[in-house]
Design a protein around this nucleic acid. Structure first.
Lengths: 220, 220
DNA sequence: AAATTGATCTACTTCCCAGTAGTTTTTTAG
DNA sequence: CTAAAAAACTACTGGGAAGTAGATCAATTT
């Protein structure tokens, strides 16, 4: 971890004023920081090479450490994958719930905001989302159940949002709550074609995504 | 290949009237048949376990044969993957071109037909499509280039179709040809959530897909 | 400064799997 | 029915990767 020390310092710099001489919390922050770095590197490499073809030696090399280092922060390879999958979906779910809880002018507006916010996360966490979609089947059933429940909650809430909008007369009456599946599809599809180096900016894509979602919901 | 013999007979039964004593063509049909069976079994297993985690011994066992059997029909593991990827995309591309070549009442109608036809293929060949999406990165660059070219042609033709429809005034003027990407997304997303055992029938899903695509194109 | 503790590394073991060499079985032809 | 050819199999090699045991190094304490 050649530059790891420097990064640790800067990453923790914002917090050290709050440090009350209790070494335990500082230490757990160090652990969290390293855990994070492992997840980041692993998600990039799992994304590029696929989970099964990516070795832990690759991940370790990417971080400038060795394999046993990883094993002192994760039980095994699968638990790194679980961390990646969970992080992506948890962030999206949190965003959804934040938007849902806040005030909103209309169901149409609510849908637009949710889709835009989740879309931004999906673009930002591209690698996480793709790895999640591709590699879920390699999770243990405990991890897989937990993560699937989060995903189901997400879909369910979008479905409710559509239904409420239809009932409120804001979306076309012939729209099935099933369109939530299609909207989920639009969102999930982004990371497979969007490239940070491509012609379209992230915000441009989000704009199109929101338009497309509103069209699907019959809210134009 | 316990039941292989029986299947060979029935599969070729429709053809043997056309057999003109030339053993060579019969033999090549046998080869094609076995090649097909390998691709089918492999696509199912690659779909369930992932390409890298699925061994050729698994594939062989599924067919009731041994690994060297596979190597007399395919050069290596990667070429089986290439066959799977190519089959799915080629079928979709052929369907697209058929519909495009035929008469059609309107661009709206043409779009509906293309989407329905390709959607049916995607549902029918679920495993192929998912394996293609997930495992493309494991192809050699020769295979990958060839298949990407087919895919690009597909997207390009859908884009043209949208543009023509907009120019003809059948789709809303503010629709960007970019929606072809979203429509492609809807189609590609199906196999990740559609289940043959689920509540929705394939034709029901196709119906929804066509509706959604027309909405995206602003053709309602 | 010496000793203790904790973090990380070196150097394995063990298993698995793609691909192959050479043998056996089955089919075809004479 | 026998010999040649084709098809499929048995049994292996070689390399690679997950996970581990024990050594080394650095920090902290006394």
């Amino acid at each position: 971890m050649q530059d790891g020390g420097a990064n640790v310092k800067s990453a923790l710099a914002t917090n050290d004023a709050a440090d009350m001489g209790d070494g335990a919390s500082l230490k757990s922050e160090f652990v969290a920081f390293k855990t994070n770095r492992i997840v980041e590197a692993a998600s990039r490499l799992f994304y590029e090479r696929g989970y099964s073809s990516c070795t832990l030696d690759h991940v370790a090399a990417e971080l400038g450490v060795t394999k046993p280092f990883l094993y002192s922060y994760f039980k095994n390879k699968e638990s790194i994958l679980a961390a990646i999958c969970e992080l992506g979906i948890r962030e999206a779910l949190t965003a959804l719930e934040q938007v849902m809880a806040a005030d909103h002018a209309s169901h149409r507006d609510l849908l637009a905001q949710v889709v835009a916010k989740v879309g931004r996360i999906v673009i930002h966490r591209q690698e996480y989302v793709v790895v999640y979609q591709r590699e879920m089947k390699h999770l243990s059933s405990a991890d897989s159940d937990r993560i699937l429940r989060m995903r189901a909650s997400f879909d369910h809430q979008i479905g409710n949002l559509i239904r409420d909008g239809v009932n409120a007369g804001e979306f076309e009456a012939d729209v099935d709550p099933f369109v939530s599946v299609w909207i989920g599809g639009l969102i999930s599809w982004i990371p497979t074609w969007y490239s940070r180096k491509g012609q379209r900016s992230a915000e441009e894509v989000i704009e199109h995504l929101v338009q497309a979602s509103l069209r699907l919901a019959g809210a134009n």
